[in-house]
Design a protein around this nucleic acid. Structure first.
Lengths: 343, 343
DNA sequence: TATATTAATGTTAGCGCTAACATATATCAA
DNA sequence: TTGATATATGTTAGCGCTAACATTAATATA
């Protein structure tokens, strides 16, 4: 029993199975892979014996022959942000259906680590890469050179434009504009904005949407009320503290934010200052992550279909892998307003 | 430039680099892998040319030779549960430091999918497996047979005992006992329990801890007050509704739960019934996930060091891979009480 | 000077598998 | 009966790399 096992790796090989059966490796290979021209009887015997011997095909060897690994790499900037696990869930579902396996890496918003991971995944010969870039990315040239190697890439959520790489995200600009318009329609006039990093699409697009809404309604854009908060709770909190420190006449009556974590941090600051939401100051987020419905007061925000983003990105990547001439697309999913009590 | 690229895969091979240099593949291989007996001058030239040609070593081929893939597989029951992304973050950090790559699969609490994933990962020849089993697991024999193949396994959070496989978790029984004792010390006497699935360690151990605390304080164990809620919000909510439907004299004055999602669901039910927490009914959770501090009222719960669980599990697995005679351990991390306002 | 030792490089074989070609046997039409 | 066709199986070579052994050149030792 254990004697059938390969000395080197501990697993049974095709050769061992074929020897036991008195057949050539090729016939056994054909039988196990549903190739034509195998006697049904032979096939049955092969399957039985392979099963008995607990043969597991070695995909490493298969991959070397076929130069396909049925493996994709996913680069996440921060798995701690509730948005991303949902995206991963979507990706995993699609990828699993297609019998691919998923390598996960977490860059922790560190571009150097992101580069290292991408190179490691290339060495592992992944068939494709699903990337959401870290914030502190500096050189586009890296992605250009990666792209030149011919590996298939799809960006999601945080995209880089102009590289000829497909992207799956939400219509950030429009959604950001809508939620700002909603604040305006509620009668708020001094609206502040906690912005994300401008280098990344989501940072830029959401800020643009905010600005558009203001100018559409002839509201002045007070640059003192636009503060970069990054994408975290802490960033949101300290940005809000700066706003609260402004003189009374400048202080905003409402705050729009680049994402929910940032809004949650801001809420903390507002509460600590002893102010009431939305009476003293209204606030809205962007993401609709798990905490948004639970915080007091429940947060008005934009629902980003995270799971859907993951699914679509994975689908697009698999198509790009399968079909050499797959077009480059900019897929924008619809984000929708979720009106709760914080505004 | 592009002409140096391999026709088959689009990437440059060792052979191509060696031909360009007029050296044998072996010398180039030695130079690139920091092996001894290479002329420093040669090494420098090799590194330069390899870099110029954008050579990326093919780990698939390396793995076939070495029968090591520097790859581990992680099986998560539900990445949507906030606890698990944190665990994954811990795993990823350790694994990355050791230059391993991580395959992530999400079983969605489906044991059939879990088995499929494990088999797929075995075919991919991962060096080890980090597993948190799904709830609906029925046959232990599967794990027994997997273990026989010699693959290294470490369980985390949800373990199966008696298989001779290491496990990293928290001291569930004791922590559950402590939080129940805390409720008792606050004067509650009719304490209900929303329990998890008993087949899984966390379900059993936490319930045991709860029971121990009651019997230590000579409180009667009313089996009507122990309801299986599963591990989700919905389960918690409907279990709580059953408790609220009890006759007045039976109705609990406090509820302990198997985990935070379950507690959060129960809180919803209590609020919908128009009752006040903790005045009408107190509630405590178990996990300390992101929402626990934010819900109204903030949830008293047990802090499970998720990130630490991930790190320790990954460390143990890497040690088990490296060291053939690594001992089988049951690592219990300390969970600590987090007292907030729900009790 | 002859010989042992070390350093630098090369050659061969094989990891586990499959594509592509080769062979043997059975089946069929003319 | 003959060769053509289909079916079932086998053989060879090679995917990209490295371990193990082989060779050559350079240096040290007696």
């Amino acid at each position: 029993m254990a004697s059938e096992q390969n000395k080197r790796t501990g697993s049974v090989t095709l050769k061992e199975v074929s020897e036991k059966l008195g057949l050539s490796m090729m016939t056994v290979s054909r039988a196990l892979n549903d190739k034509p021209n195998v006697n049904p009887e032979t096939k049955k015997r092969v399957l039985e014996v392979a099963n008995e011997m607990r043969y597991t095909p070695n995909h490493v060897a298969k991959s070397l022959v076929s130069s396909k690994t049925y493996t994709i790499g996913v680069i996440i900037p921060e798995i701690g942000h509730a948005f991303f696990p949902e995206v991963v869930r979507g990706i995993e579902e699609i990828v699993d259906q297609a019998n691919y396996q998923l390598f996960l890496t977490n860059s922790s918003e560190d571009f150097e680590k992101e580069k290292r991971s991408i190179n490691a995944l290339r060495a592992k010969r992944v068939d494709g890469l699903l990337i959401s870039t870290s914030i502190k990315r500096s050189d586009y040239s890296f992605f250009e050179s990666i792209k030149k190697t011919g590996i298939k890439i799809v960006f999601f959520d945080r995209c880089i434009q102009g590289l000829g790489i497909s992207c799956v995200g939400v219509n950030d600009r429009i959604a950001s504009k809508q939620i700002t318009q909603y604040l305006i329609s509620q009668g708020y006039t001094k609206i502040a904005y906690l912005s994300g990093p401008p280098e990344v699409t989501i940072g830029k697009d959401r800020l643009d949407g905010f600005k558009e809404a203001l100018s559409d309604h002839q509201l002045e854009l007070n640059s003192n009320l636009i503060i970069e908060s990054g994408l975290t709770e802490n960033g949101g909190k300290s940005a809000m503290e700066k706003l609260l420190a402004l003189a009374d006449h400048e202080r905003p009556d409402a705050v729009a934010t680049v994402n929910d974590p940032s809004a949650l941090g801001a809420i903390e600051a507002i509460k600590e200052a002893g102010l009431k939401i939305p009476d003293d100051i209204a606030i809205v987020g962007f993401t609709n992550e798990v905490r948004a419905s639970i915080v007091q007061p429940p947060l008005t925000t934009v629902n980003q279909p995270a799971y859907e983003v993951g699914k679509r990105a994975a689908q697009k990547l698999l198509q790009t892998i399968k079909n050499e001439s797959e077009s480059i697309e900019n897929i924008e999913l619809n984000a929708t307003l979720v009106i709760r009590e914080s505004s």
